[in-house]
Each structure stands twice: as structure tokens, then as C-alpha cells.
Amino acid sequence: MAGELDSDKLLKLGEVINRGLGQSGAVISEMTGLAMEIKAPRIEMIPLKEIAVIAGGPASVGVGLYQGITGDVDGHLLLFFSEQNAYSLVDLLLELPEGFTAGRGELGPMEYSALSELSNVTGSFFMNSLADLTGLEIIPSTPAVVLDMLGSILDNILAELSSKGDQALVAEAEFEGMSKGIRGCFLLLPTPEALEIILDRLGQGL
């Protein structure tokens, strides 16, 4: 499928995704008071086996902020932060002194709730932007926040996608909070059917 993607449509899809990422980044900035820069957005077809690798490797431990995509199209949205970066994010979200959450070394209900809210808002902003630009109905699921190995967080998603193909379109970008060095990885994984629907819409010159 990789080579068959129309480059014009892919370019358009890139614009749409960048617009959504901009919205999400702005919202993270607002919630954390930290200027967030979106770096190196990439959109490409990637073999499923390599998806964990581009985000740090299946064994890397961190926090995944997940929202499922439903409605006219199905897919998955995952923001992944390394454990230390997630702790720093929590400090900012809950207005705690720098290093406080890392000192505790764990996430409690309050911390999960703050990250869940962040996931909900960034995911919703991204999906709203995508819906506006494509005219599709796109509904975010409730968010799930987990601290675990990246491979295990991605597993359910990859299993679903792997029943439909060996590779998937991955939109990947890094969020970087310049002053604190917080970095996160953003993965958008539409199902092949969803990708086709979205590209069709974009091809109609919306």
C-alpha cells in the first residue's frame, strides 16, 4: 500500500494533521504554561513491527495517553512520554514544585486524573480539527492513561491494525517544551479503511 498513496493527497493529509497538531500543542501550552513546539512531524506508511521502534522501542517505559477514534472513521491516537517526562508534565499540570512527582516516583489518582484531562483535551482538539477539515464525524473515546512498556501499550492497537494489513499510516511528531526539555511522541494510527475515507474526502478538494 505504501507506494500507492497519492502524494498530493498525502501532502493535504499532512497539512490537516499539522493543523490538528498545532491545536493540540497550543492546548498543552495553555494547560502547562510551557511553550510547546511541534517538531519533525512525519507522515508515512510504516511496517507495524517498526511502530514501537520509532517511538523509543517496545521496552521503553513511559506514560501513554490514549484515545480511540470512532464515528465515521476508526483509529487510534497515542501520546507517549518517558516516565521522567511524564512526571515533569504532572508537576506542571498540578502546579507542583519541579521534581516533586519524580521524587515520589509514582502516579496516584490525582496524577492520573490530570494526565487523563490533558489527553482528553489534546485528543479532542486534534479530532475536532480533523473533523472540521474533512467534514467527517469523528468521535474521541474516553481517554486511557497507563504507565507501562511502550510495546504493551501499543499491543492492542497493533493487533487490531495487523488484522487489516502489515503496515499502517503513522503520523508521528514530537512535542517539546523548550524550557523544561519535556518531549513526547504523538502517534496517529488510522485503520486502512479510515485512511481511505479521509484521503477520499481530501481528494474532493475540501
Binding site: D74, N156, I157, A159
Partner: peptide, 16 residues
């Protein structure tokens, strides 16, 4: 395991 627990998506994600 079922690492991602999302209400409303149980069927899609309960592969474990």
C-alpha cells in the same frame, strides 16, 4: 493483558 481499558471500545481492544 488488556493494557488499554477504554469504555465503549471493549470489543475492539479486548484481544488479550
Amino acid at each position: 493483558a488488556q493494557v488499554l481499558q477504554v469504555s465503549g471500545m471493549k470489543n475492539r481492544l479486548d484481544i488479550g
